[in-house]
Amino acid sequence: MVLCFDHREKGNGEVANEQVFIPGILPKIPGWIYYLFGKPIQTHGRGDHILKDREKAVELYLQIKSEVEHSMAYLLKKWEEDPYRSIFNRVVYQVFHSPHRDIPGFKPD
Rank of each mutant, 00 (worst) to 15 (best):
M1R: 14
L3H: 14
D6F: 08
H7K: 07
H7S: 03
R8Q: 03
E9T: 05
N12E: 11
G13S: 07
V15N: 11
V15W: 14
V15R: 15
A16C: 01
N17G: 00
Q19N: 09
V20Q: 13
F21R: 11
I22N: 00
G24W: 13
I25T: 10
I25A: 08
K28H: 13
I29N: 10
I29H: 10
I33E: 02
Y35R: 14
Y35Q: 13
F37K: 09
G38D: 09
P40E: 10
P40W: 04
I41T: 12
Q42A: 08
H44K: 14
G47D: 02
I50L: 15
I50H: 08
L51I: 06
K52H: 14
D53P: 01
R54P: 02
R54I: 07
E55Y: 08
K56V: 12
V58T: 06
V58M: 11
V58R: 06
E59I: 04
L62V: 10
Q63N: 07
Q63F: 04
Q63G: 07
I64V: 15
I64K: 13
K65G: 02
K65R: 12
S66Y: 11
E67N: 12
V68E: 00
S71D: 00
S71I: 01
A73R: 13
L75T: 10
L75N: 02
L75G: 02
L75F: 03
K77G: 04
K77Q: 07
K78A: 07
K78M: 15
K78L: 15
W79P: 03
E80M: 09
D82Y: 10
D82A: 09
D82V: 10
P83R: 12
P83M: 08
R85V: 05
N89A: 13
V91W: 14
V91R: 02
V92G: 00
Q94A: 01
V95M: 09
H97M: 10
H97R: 12
H97V: 03
H97F: 11
P99Y: 00
H100E: 05
R101W: 07
I103H: 09
G105V: 12
F106Q: 08
P108D: 14
P108R: 13
